[in-house]
Design a protein around this nucleic acid. Sequence first.
DNA 1: ACGATCACTGTAACCGCTTACATACGGAAT
DNA 2: ATTCCGTATGTAAGCGGTTACAGTGATCGT
Lengths: 338, 338
Amino acid sequence: MNERRPPKIEDVARRAGVSTATVSRCLNSPDAVRAKTRSLVEAAISELGYTPHFGARALALNRTYTIGAVIPTMENAIFARGLQAVQERLSEAGTTLLLASSGYDPEQESKQIRTLMQRGVDGLLLIGEARPASTYEMVEARSLPIVLVWCNGETTAHPCVGFDNRAAARDMARLVLDHGHQRIAMVAGITAWNDRAARRVEGVRDAMSAAGLALDDGNLEEAEYSLEAGGRALRNLMSRPAKPTAVICGNDVLAAGVMKAARELGLSVPEDLSVTGFDNIELASVLDPALTTVHVPHRRMGWTAADKLLEIQSGSGPGANTTFNTDLVVRGSLKRVG
Amino acid sequence: MNERRPPKIEDVARRAGVSTATVSRCLNSPDAVRAKTRSLVEAAISELGYTPHFGARALALNRTYTIGAVIPTMENAIFARGLQAVQERLSEAGTTLLLASSGYDPEQESKQIRTLMQRGVDGLLLIGEARPASTYEMVEARSLPIVLVWCNGETTAHPCVGFDNRAAARDMARLVLDHGHQRIAMVAGITAWNDRAARRVEGVRDAMSAAGLALDDGNLEEAEYSLEAGGRALRNLMSRPAKPTAVICGNDVLAAGVMKAARELGLSVPEDLSVTGFDNIELASVLDPALTTVHVPHRRMGWTAADKLLEIQSGSGPGANTTFNTDLVVRGSLKRVG
DNA sequence: ACGATCACTGTAACCGCTTACATACGGAAT
DNA sequence: ATTCCGTATGTAAGCGGTTACAGTGATCGT
């Protein structure tokens, strides 16, 4: 019943006995108005419960205090944690995060970016560097600030905050090799339009070639981001002549799927099969045996990305890329052989 | 370099040789304009790459085609999946989801709601029913449509889409009792301002009382939503005189923490200790043994909530609450005793 | 042939806020 | 006292859409 329209700046002005300009100034540059006037205005504001109209502000300023992010999926924990960090930082700066997801599909991603741009976001946060040139062009046409996360800028000039996926995967593969494994297979994420997955494959390949081993159709499986896909991949690998003694996975979820399938195949981990993951999500620590994986500093990545976005937005140049170090987390799923 | 300002409706009008009103009509009520004119305008629009200014639209219509949601946390999968579904449905209807998180803190939640309201969201989606009256009042003052999820409206008149947490927990407890357990403990989520957690405790208590058993300080632990907290809770329970043979957990994450801690304590699940969860997140199926838990139809809940929100928004009344059924998922972590 | 009716389209007011510019005022310098 | 200047405030023109209302032809009935 009580649906009276919300107060506007004019109502505040009238009540405080000043002009709308003064009210606006109280809100946007408080020092420009005398302390006495200001307290008058502030009283009126709180009595009326006034709050500026978002659309009107966006129109007048051509600025929304919103940054948009497109992540591959909300359903899995990897991005959620990083984004949570981004959000924390942004909200300290009075900026809101508008979140969309693409389902790992570059076309969907482009569509979502378009939507975000229509809503006038002040900046864009995207995962990884691999996407069609047309997508980048669309963003550049509006010269929107953009920051890429989870990558280190190997193939793009856009500012990046992330880590070296390739080096991290190489380290993990070396670790597995150091444990005496020779028949090593990899279950990777889908590498098409996913540079994180692709770099991880390259990293593993680097280390294996250096040891005189090959990673090829015979011992490499790509699988979408799910437990089931990981399981299928393992079954495929195990149906080949040279069964691996270790499986390096492109992420923890695939590794969990692999471990589950191994159990179903009657293989015990790590006695019959060593398994490693990537990301170090919570899941990794509750598996039995616990998963050997690569720890990625999600939260620091998120904070830094947010900071960088705010910087760029406020005019200062994008500055250098930020590349974090990753750490190997050695747990029970990896065993020495030979 | 190419930072020319985006085209406005006037540019389109000029190019198509019509007035801005006609362009606007082409966009908003296409039937009101002659087909020939329309194609002229549409051509101009696509040549210029015109896209309406969000803020201007919001100002003129006093409507943002945005609905806001506040969830306790993005970091865990339960809400992510439901929200993903909400988003899918909304985006089909041309509406965007603006997401915020409260960290399970009612004060934070209120703050986030305020922020969303300032941004002019057309509706609100909240988790659960328990929150300070002042929060509800704030929303009602602006007569904003609101839908609650994950609950069944026991304590509120607001429209709800969810399930009966109490009944589901009761079913689970009965199942455990039917397996012969007598010394049963519960590790619940924090129940303050969290009706889901509270109802689940009540449900377990219902079933136990009916069996002549008590759930009290001696065999009930509350723990925040994390593996570690679940582990701590189990250690507490196990340090008491009457060690339980089964632990019913308020959610899967706590259950995973309990199972991990059990392992560390040298207890094997389910031989020494049965464990059950709630939510049936992916995690439940990769645990070893797999977790007996309650399946909740997250996706359908999300879809339905989105539909209801759109309905209310478009004027039709809120209609009845929707209550989904839950299912017990029986897996290896629960064993018969006695 | 003429007015009535209908289907489109144009004009311009308005949505609520910001801000360039004009104005008013008080005090310091002359 | 007059001029000048800086500070605080007011006035009003946008920002880019939507839409009530007015206007314009074309069509139709008589």
